[in-house]
Nucleic acid binder design. Sequence first.
DNA 1: ATCGATAGGTGCATTTTGAGCATAACTCAT
DNA 2: ATGAGTTATGCTCAAAATGCACCTATCGAT
Lengths: 241, 241
Amino acid sequence: MKKSNTYYITENDQPLDEYLSFGLSVDCIVFGYHKGEIRVLLVERDAAPFKGDWALIGDLVNPQSDLSDSANHVLERLTGLKDIFLEQFFTFGSIRRHPVGRVVTVGYYSLLKSKDYHPIASSWAKSTKWFSINELPELAFDHSEILKKGIETLKTKVRYHPVGFELLPSKFTLLELQDLYEALLGYTFDKPNFRKKILSMDLLIPLNEVQENVSHRPAKLFKFDEQRYTQLRKEGFSFEF
Amino acid sequence: MKKSNTYYITENDQPLDEYLSFGLSVDCIVFGYHKGEIRVLLVERDAAPFKGDWALIGDLVNPQSDLSDSANHVLERLTGLKDIFLEQFFTFGSIRRHPVGRVVTVGYYSLLKSKDYHPIASSWAKSTKWFSINELPELAFDHSEILKKGIETLKTKVRYHPVGFELLPSKFTLLELQDLYEALLGYTFDKPNFRKKILSMDLLIPLNEVQENVSHRPAKLFKFDEQRYTQLRKEGFSFEF
DNA sequence: ATCGATAGGTGCATTTTGAGCATAACTCAT
DNA sequence: ATGAGTTATGCTCAAAATGCACCTATCGAT
């Protein structure tokens, strides 16, 4: 990457290199839901600093990697979880938030059905564990603050954005979708009406596939119609629950 | 700031300093509203790169400054505007988004009544100008993309946060409010029903004042009840349009 | 005093939405 | 074939939002 010291530094006469001295990291909040409870996947640190403490799934970003790719790479490296949809929610940039230098961190979150995923600790992660968001330990760095902001964001955002769809497995049943929304919003829906409302939004593509290996009538599978959603948004449609 | 090379670099054996080589910048989108039109304040660059092009109000962050403070500093340095509330909305981190090196930028936006503020270009800004969001020039760097995302964010947010009131003068008529919402949301409302809905929210304080110097029946003036809004939010009220 | 223009408001018919309940259809295990 | 367990769908009734017609108020201009 070209570095030109002729670039206009506006505030004072410091050389450009003084300005290119930030560290960048990503921190992923992996939300899981299971039996009506929202949980968070944390990792136990096996390296200094904060060795032995619980932390979010995060690490420094390699200067050769795209920011948006890094979150997925870090998640896979530490837990083995692949192809998880991650959404950026906030960037934390206090001066002294990281002991090693000036490190700015970008927060991401994802949401998944925890029983379908089996994280395996690797790299500097000694172990992983799901914690109920009501019984959280003290976290390394400023991760408690980051997590708090992430939880807030998720709970407000879920009412107005179809995060629920985007974060489910690509093929899902309507009841799975309903369970997710009930877990997130904290109240239940009438099944026929939930179905009616969701389908009338015209955001789901019915697949010619059904559940397999279930000991009852298999449910039809659907997928989220991303294109249709962006289309409808342009026309002024607003998702609401 | 302490820099320790004993810090655990997880991916490979590169020294820590290789990871502390990012630049960080902020870019501010200043939205204004005037006569039924939503506008954005842009600055003309008087320095390389992109000299002569229009750009968002942004600059590199000094490694000794807090991220959240920097946005305000930059806004004041380039335009003279002080004490503007800025809200962070997204962080852009593509590898090649900045010609000078790996610079990650954090996007902020603010809302203000454009006729009440008088920006004055300084530092590397040659001039400032309000642009209608429907007639935007091509911008420097990836600022067009940033602005697009910011406009999207504003348009989404306006549905469930009373941000609109910040764009209006502190005393406004109901029709001015309606015009603003129509501009932001892109469709029209029925006048009687708009009034009914907004007044039933109980968020406006009617003033004992009316419009002046109009050649027709003067409209009553209202102001937004900030206290009442924070009160209602605590009770679980959610603003919706 | 009257008119044009725009603000402020009432009332009602119509449409849309949501809650609750009932029931049909389908699949597997026995 | 039957019944348990689910999925899938239909219906009613009430409440809320919408669309529209129409009436009145207050200003400046003539």
